[in-house]
Design a protein around this nucleic acid. Structure first.
Lengths: 233, 233
DNA sequence: ACCTGAACACCGTTCAAGT
DNA sequence: ACCTGAACACCGTTCAAGT
């Protein structure tokens, strides 16, 4: 049996805000966002739910902390949010930073949903945007255009696009045959697109959308649009 | 007092899926998304919560229905999702359709959050995208480019941009003075942007971001990028 | 200083029962 | 066919109490 002095016993490391946030991320990584409850986080830590409230005021500030922790992961992945004094290729640097952020976000597929419910941005995210803004500024942008540009990038600046209606099942009920009949009749353009695109692609009809490909297409469309505006200003 | 035969009594119109969905939208319009509970919807209808389950299987399918109802509002606002056989200016038509959708979404500020939690798309949304796709196709797009384009538009195609961290309070706690000191020291680019942009603008520092202006800037950036790709293909 | 037990208000949902 | 009462499992959170 385990006592206080048992050398085999786990060290019984005390709780802390950091441990709570890490546990929250672990829980969400394992079970998705709907599993992220105070009680589950406590369980992950081997503690009662009420103990968490000593370290985080409530669930909302816990989620703020989780967002900050994810941004810290991004900071580590990109090697700091600093801005070199001379930026020769702003587009390449911004693109690289965003695609690196995306790698982190893909490790936490539930995170975009949490980011979007946050209303205030903590210091880490501010620093992230400060870095992006700095890259654009040193890359030759006016503040005004850079500001528009950050808005245009939107959630992409943090590496996610929040796809509307991920087509994992799409009309999953119907027979494929019947569904195709229906499409030919009522959705001529969708049907045409499906036929043309699946033509080149041996994957199933649902495999059209390579998220990474679409993300990079959209990102480059915006970055190139901004570069054009910058060059003509 | 009111009895069954009292002619003054309200007609006691029976429940229906449509009435439930309309009530749900009313509740969310009044109190925001967190007030949209089964019990509140029932209360809005003067009925017990459990009665709803006779008309909608559960809350999730109720939300699916709510999304469909909102898209129906969009359909009415744009005058149908049809595609003219000759499209002379795809950009203007797509732009107009999207900005009209935006007007509807602005009436329901809670709706974007609901849209983004939906996983399957119902028939109305499919028809909406069919219409957009048709406009692009008849406007001279290959299916492949149109497909990329729809992904690039993302949630903007339905009229919302889901701003990250709406800066309603942003560091609301600190004194303005102290905050400015802090910014000058640690956030040189943010501070510079703030100074340059607020310079032209008599509004408060937090009034930079006109959502409509930013939305249209982003939308036009993407539409013009797509037009360029279309013209060069 | 740090953690817990009991309790409260509020969810979504089931099910047997009413009309 | 349509609606309801009572009940259950599960939330976030408070508060007085333990160590």
């Amino acid at each position: 049996m385990v006592t206080d002095t048992d050398p085999i016993a786990e060290p019984r490391v005390p709780l802390s805000k950091e441990r709570v946030l890490r546990a929250a991320i672990t829980v969400a990584d394992k079970g998705g966002i709907e599993s992220l409850t105070m009680r589950k986080v406590a369980e992950e830590l081997g503690v009662e739910a009420m103990s968490l409230y000593y370290h985080v005021a409530n669930k909302d500030v816990m989620l703020d902390g989780v967002v900050e922790a994810i941004v810290a992961e991004i900071e580590e992945a990109v090697g700091g949010f600093g801005v070199p004094s001379k930026v020769v290729d702003w587009k390449a640097e911004v693109r690289n930073r965003i695609l690196t952020a995306r790698v982190v976000m893909l490790r936490h597929p539930w995170a975009p949903g949490v980011f979007e419910t946050r209303t205030m941005m903590g210091p880490s995210i501010v620093m992230y945007f400060e870095g992006l803004l700095g890259l654009m500024r040193e890359g030759g942008f006016s503040y005004d255009l850079a500001h528009h540009g950050m808005h245009a990038l939107g959630s992409m600046s943090l590496g996610f696009s929040q796809e509307l209606f991920k087509p994992d099942s799409e009309e999953a009920g119907e027979e494929a045959e019947e569904m195709f009949e229906h499409m030919m009749e009522h959705l001529p353009y969708m049907a045409g697109m499906m036929m043309e695109i699946t033509h080149d692609d041996p994957d199933s009809t649902l495999g059209w959308c390579d998220d990474q490909t679409e993300f990079e297409f959209s990102l480059d469309l915006i970055l190139e649009g901004l570069e054009r505006l910058r060059a003509n200003s």
